[in-house]
């Protein structure tokens, strides 16, 4: 593929790509650490996650600035335009993932201060699934691989099902013994956060498909309903 005739434009796009990747890598690491913080009962990891959020937030602002600059100065079109708009949306998702990792870390620290509680086998599984989804979505973004992003869309149901099962199990635990309520609630939150991380990965994947193919795959049902209504 020939580069842009305007080399400064080419450099801007490369910088943008690099910053998004750095942000994605940071967010992935934060999830891993926050989950580890819970599993290993090591609150120092949690504190590190909380401290890391500042960097993700800084990158979000930088990516936003760069996108606005490119839009204002270069009037990008076609694939460039789709890349910039995708970047603008992905950056929000990544920032939210960072916040969720911080939330998980906070819950973990709270849990670590209390008596240990048997962690249900499904929680690490859920954590692992959420991380994989995020990693895959970012890989798809880097490679411009719509097929990979598409494959990811189907796996979200697994995440949802796992969360539901975990939720029911924890509810059961709380009903059995009220002294579990605080800790179990914390765990429900952790599970919910992981499920949300999966949703953000899904958003990223949808945007990647739009970026590569130029077709919007979001909310097919709502759009069909609207079209039926309009005609």
């Amino acid at each position: 593929m020939p580069g842009h005739t305007d080399k400064a434009f080419e450099r801007d796009l490369q910088t943008l790509r690099d910053k998004l990747l750095a942000m994605g890598a940071r967010a992935e690491a934060m999830i891993a650490e926050s989950v580890l913080c819970l599993a290993e009962r090591d609150s120092r990891l949690g504190k590190h996650v909380i401290a890391s959020d500042a960097e993700v937030n800084r990158l979000e602002v930088e990516v936003d600035d760069l996108c606005r600059r490119v839009l204002a100065l270069r009037q990008p079109a076609a694939s460039d335009l789709r890349f910039i708009t995708t970047a603008l949306k992905i950056v929000t998702d990544l920032e939210r993932v960072g916040d969720l990792a911080v939330n998980i870390a906070e819950r973990a620290i709270d849990l670590n201060d209390a008596q240990p509680m048997p962690i249900y086998g499904d929680l690490p599984h859920l954590a692992q699934l959420a991380q994989t989804q995020l990693k895959d979505s970012l890989d798809a973004f880097v490679a411009g691989d719509a097929a990979k992003a598409e494959a990811l869309l189907g796996r979200d149901e697994l995440l949802d099902a796992l969360f539901l099962k975990l939720f029911n199990d924890l509810l059961q635990l709380m009903m059995e013994d009220s002294k579990h309520v605080r800790r179990a609630t914390n765990l429900v939150f952790v599970a919910k956060h992981l499920e949300r991380i999966g949703d953000h990965a899904l958003n990223i994947a949808e945007m990647v498909i739009y970026m590569v193919r130029g077709t919007d795959v979001r909310h097919p049902l709502s759009r069909e309903l609207h079209r039926a209504h309009a005609s």
Binding site: G3, H4, T5, A77, A78, D80, R213
Partner: peptide, 20 residues
Amino acid sequence: TIFTNPSMKRTEDYVTGKFG
């Protein structure tokens, strides 16, 4: 469509400024 998602590579290269 031409400016967000052209179907031909040449068009894409032209509207994104990749002609050299």
